[in-house]
Every structure is written in structure tokens, then in C-alpha cells.
Design a protein around this nucleic acid. Sequence first.
DNA 1: CGACAGAAATGACGTACGTCAAGCGCGCTT
DNA 2: AAGCGCGCTTGACGTACGTCATTTCTGTCG
Lengths: 253, 253
Amino acid sequence: MRRNNPAGRLPEPLNPIADDGDETHFCRTCAFSGACIAEGYGKPELLELHCLVEHVGPFHAGEHIFRTGDPFRSIFAVRAGTVKTSMVDPDGHEQVLGFYLPGEVIGLNAIYPDQFPCDAVALDTAYFCRFSFPAMSALATRMPAVQQRLFRLISKELGMATLLAGDHNADMRMAAFLTDLAARYEERGFSGTRFHLSMSRGDIANYLRLAAETVSRVLSRFRQQGLIELEGREMLLRDPEGLRQIGRNLLSH
Amino acid sequence: MRRNNPAGRLPEPLNPIADDGDETHFCRTCAFSGACIAEGYGKPELLELHCLVEHVGPFHAGEHIFRTGDPFRSIFAVRAGTVKTSMVDPDGHEQVLGFYLPGEVIGLNAIYPDQFPCDAVALDTAYFCRFSFPAMSALATRMPAVQQRLFRLISKELGMATLLAGDHNADMRMAAFLTDLAARYEERGFSGTRFHLSMSRGDIANYLRLAAETVSRVLSRFRQQGLIELEGREMLLRDPEGLRQIGRNLLSH
DNA sequence: CGACAGAAATGACGTACGTCAAGCGCGCTT
DNA sequence: AAGCGCGCTTGACGTACGTCATTTCTGTCG
């Protein structure tokens, strides 16, 4: 009986890792793997893409991957761990822009200003693939699927930012946040109902443009309503469909 | 004396038009003209780009340029007039996403979902250049400057959406909105202090995620404070620097 | 010209969420 | 194990903005 979970405790979730790439294959969950499949893995150009990838990490919780103002030279695909990106406005207030899971890509919003417009900070121990952007856009020039992939990644990010910009109440924002997170975990092959929140309540609040206290209250209410189970940062979605309904105005699919 | 403006009336602003292109030159203010300058106007590929442009319009106030769900085949550069884009959420509430002036490009957010995620409606009589997107991305494959231009246009749009997503009070949002509009007019060669608001107060309110009444009140206050002069939809910025200061947290430059 | 409709301004009032403050639990460090 | 700090929760209260209602203005059409 000692080996069972004590009553009221959630079981440990798997630690999300997408680190199954090698010299000639992308990680299974990588945002660029789709481009490779489209083109056929054998192409010499894809080998080039592999050559221009540099594996970096580990970064530990709190460490910066890049900082506001750094010259834009690379984009990063998350191999393992979680990242938050944030800006600080002229008054010194932090603004969380997004959270990034294994397989997702950070740095795309630096293309226009040609320097990073935000900080990227590891929330836990994180590893990355670094792609030189000049090399990548040169490759995109020769490989339509890579170009397509880049366009779509940026355009997708644009869609996310747009949704967040709507005016919605705290319940909708929170429900949409959880549903989105779940969908992204699932998409990458992790559990879509049980996962670890790598970010603090404060970060979630900031991201959703709410006060940390409001986030606490909404989560407590969701728990009372049987929508979720939550212990510390271990999340279990008990009624994903219910959450999706609450947040539907903010969710594209 | 009859020819002078009566006291308290603003003079008529110029009607913004950017329609000075022909078969071999882009409109002066066009978002793509930069790509041409970078490459040198003479290149045969640019003539191709001209071939794939189709001039469309006029669209009259209230007419749709495209609708949510339309298959994505083209992007549009505004040649004259003003456009608003908007989504309706599952509850039927409209969400204004943006306003587009002559020289600016609409439709970029359709790349990822491969269909238009929003409606585009003319706010006054409007003309466009329609670019076939498949043709354009094929061209981008051969012309790095065109690819670069596309990346930057999308990335810029991403930056805009991000700013709007912050939580800021009504004064800041309004001041930033006016400052941004002024900067964009100026960038395209129009007056940056005196212009016509083609959109209703309701549309502005919706865009800024405020109530129409709040917009009215803020504008009245700005007028009392001597920041602006406003008569109907004719806007004169009396203290652009003051406005910029109020909205500085929302403005990147 | 006068009548009408929609847009805009202004005032009175309600509320969702922020702010402030106190208390609790959990993981460090020594 | 005790002590400390930080993240989280919960309650009490304030406020910026939304909602509702009324009035005024503007442009359009008989």
C-alpha cells in the first residue's frame, strides 16, 4: 500500500521531453519536422538544415536564452523544458507574451525589428536547437516547404496574439489558457489532461492580463465546480469539454 | 471672408490616396516598393511581380473585400481608402482587429489557417492591388528581398497585435492609437497631425477593447486638456508629443 | 424645409476585477 | 528541527470602466 498514491495526491506526470533527434533526423515533435516529411527526408538540402542546427543547453530555471535588444541571428526550437517570453514596458512592468513547450519555436517576432523585442527565460531545465536565421532563410529560398513552414509558424503566432487581445472575462481567459495548453501537449504526444504547470500563478496572471489573486480565485472556483483537480502545479483536467465551452470564444478550433 | 473657415471649424484634410503606380512601377507608398528598391527596379523578376498584380476596386463603404472562411489565395495592398478587419466570435460579438491605410497590406493572417480568419470591410471608397499568394511565394523563392519583405510584414503585424494585448487604461490606449495612426499617415507621406478618422467611434472602441461611451469621454477629456482638436471625424493633434507620452508604454518607437 | 435615423456626447449607476492585507503551506538553509 | 522566505490562497474594499438611459448633433431623404 505504500506504493499507492496517498489519497488526494495526483500521480506524477511524465516530464515533457522531445529530445529524440540525431544528426540526420529531426526530433519527432519538432516544428520543422513537417517540412522534412513534405520534402522527403533524403534530400541533400535537409542535411544542410541539420548542419546549420546547433544543440544548445542546458539552461536552468531563470536563465535567459536571449534578452531584449540582442541582435537577431537565430531562432530556437525547444527540445526539452519550458520557456516564457516577456517584455518590460518603459515603466518597468513585465508583460508575459507566451509560454513555449517542447517542439515549439521562439524568436520569430524578432524578424521585423531585426533584434529580439523580448526576453526569453527558461522556466525549468531547457534544451534547444538553434537555427541560424540567415542560413534558414537562404535554405527557404531553395526549398518551398521550408519557406511555407516559416510563413505558417509566424502567421500562427499572429493568430495566438490576436486571440489574447480580445476582451474576455477571467473565467474565459483561464479556461482557454488551460484548453490551449492541453491541446499543445497532446499535439506533441504528451498527456492532454494531466500536466505540470511550469509557470507560477503570477506568470499565468501576467500572461492573461489578470491579477495573480484573480487567477487563484478562478482556479479555486474551477476546482469547486469539478472542472479541474489541482495540487500545487500538478494539473488534472476533469472536464476538458466543459473548459473548452467556457473558453470557446477565445479558441480557434 | 466667406472663403475663410468659420471660427471653430477645422480645415478639410487631404484625402489619403496612394495611387501613383503604373505597369512598371509600384505605388510610391506601397509596402512592397522597398523590396523593389532593394533589388533594383530593372530586374525581370519584378516585372513578373507586376504581372501577378491585379488592380481591384472600387469597393464602397461597408462592402467586403473578403469574408471569414474564404479560401486564402491572395493578399491585398491598399491603394486608396481605409479598411477594417474584424472577427465575430461564437457568440456573435464583433472584434475589430485592425485598420489599414493606403500602402498597407491585408490578408497576412490567413497564411497559417489557409483561409481568411476575419472579414475585411471598406470604411470608405477603397482600391487595392491584389497579389496572388502562391505566385508571390514562388517569386519569394527566387528573390530573397521579396521573401524578406514578407517575413518582415508578418512579423511587424505580430508586433502590433502583441502591443494591443497588454492591459492598459483607456487614456493610454487612445493616445497610443492616435499616435500610431499619425505615424502611419506620416510614413506614407500624408499629414501626421491632421487627418480624417474613417472609422466610427464604435469601431475605435471595439478595436481598443473599450465601450463606445468611454471613447467619447476620453476624446472629450483630451480636447479639454488641449491635446487634440476634434470636430466630428476631423482630427487635429495639437500636442502629439503629449499624446506619445501618455501612450508610450504601448508604442514600440 | 422639416422629419427622421444613426452617430456621438453626457450623466447616473452597477460590477468585475485590481489592490491591499492577513494567513497558510512548502521547500530552503543552517 | 527550527527559522526563514516565497508562492499561493482567501477576504475586505476601492475603482476604472461597462451598461443603461437621455439628450444632442449630423447627415439624408422626402
